[in-house]
Design a protein around this nucleic acid. Structure first.
Ligand code: ZN
Length: 263
DNA sequence: AGTATTTGACCTTT
DNA sequence: AAAGGTCAAATACT
């Protein structure tokens, strides 16, 4: 009821206050002798709150974009507002997304976020009750081939490290570019490089997800179509990322989530 | 040339 | 009617 028409700043304030409370609690717990785990948990919560605040801020920044940053100078355009009449009939079909199989992928986003397919964004929508907009993608080879695969991506309200991805349809396209095919076909397992980082600071939520994926992938037969995948991307320890020699791609990623560019 | 993203209109579903 | 999903023209990036 509350988080409906208020502007995003209110959410920002809430998240910030939440982080403040968590820090306060942390400080209180610090004077207690044997609450190390509690403190650790609180620290992670607070860290998560900050990360959430940053992501929300980026959302706000994004929504006030048209007036911002470098825009191509219109040089000379002062056209009147034009109303255009368009009456078109679009036939409908398609199945639903349905199915809520939840899968969790280990946080390493080496390639986990890029599932090896090329996606073309075709829409974005604000969803009731969701802070972040839902983004719609379809396979790039829809026209070249008949590939009907689609997916929608939405960041979690609660956890800044979780992005829900819902797939619909299966790829009928073929992988064109194979520069380095590598060991592309693995089970839903994590990838090698980031393992330590993951394990050293997994949030409680991440743990849940990970356990849930194991149960889901092993026991239940997941329908090949229409599945919801929950991706926990990016880990908190960027220092660890720096200490390891991780390429620019990761720093790029790091930038996306931890840095606000000052413009 | 080319292909991707953005975004309001339009259509479907609830 | 309103929320959710898609289209397509304009725009941006290569
Ligand atoms: Zn495809």
């Amino acid at each position: 009821m509350e988080s409906s028409r208020a502007c995003d700043f209110n959410i920002l304030i809430d998240v910030l206050n939440q982080g403040k409370e968590q820090i306060l609690e942390l400080e209180a717990q610090l004077s207690q002798p044997c609450t190390v785990e509690t403190c650790r948990a609180l620290a992670r919560q607070a860290q998560s709150s900050f990360a959430m605040a940053i992501v929300v801020t980026k959302l706000i920044q994004q929504r006030s974009k048209p007036a911002g940053s470098s825009l191509q100078l219109p040089a000379g355009l002062d056209k009147e507002q034009e109303k255009k009449e368009m009456s078109k009939k679009r036939k409908s079909l398609q199945q639903k997304w349905s199915s809520n199989v939840q899968v969790c992928v280990g946080s390493s986003m080496e390639r986990s976020l890029d599932d090896g397919h090329n996606w073309r964004k075709y829409g974005q929508k604000d969803i009731l009750g969701s802070i972040f907009p839902r983004e719609y993608y379809r396979c790039s080879h829809r026209h070249s081939q008949g590939c009907q695969a689609r997916k929608q991506v939405q960041r979690s309200n609660k956890d800044p490290y979780i992005i829900d991805i819902t797939y619909s349809g299966t790829h009928t396209c073929i992988h064109a570019d194979t520069r380095s095919e590598e060991q592309s076909y693995h089970q839903p397992k994590r990838t090698q490089t980031m393992k330590e980082i993951e394990q050293s600071n997994v949030s409680s939520i991440t743990d849940q997800q990970v356990s849930s994926i194991h149960s889901a992938s092993s026991s239940a037969a997941t329908p090949p179509e229409n599945l919801t995948m929950r991706t926990t991307d990016l880990e908190h320890n960027h220092f660890a990322m720096e200490s390891m020699d991780i390429g620019l791609e990761y720093m790029e990623f790091y930038n996306d989530y931890f840095l606000l560019d000052f413009s």
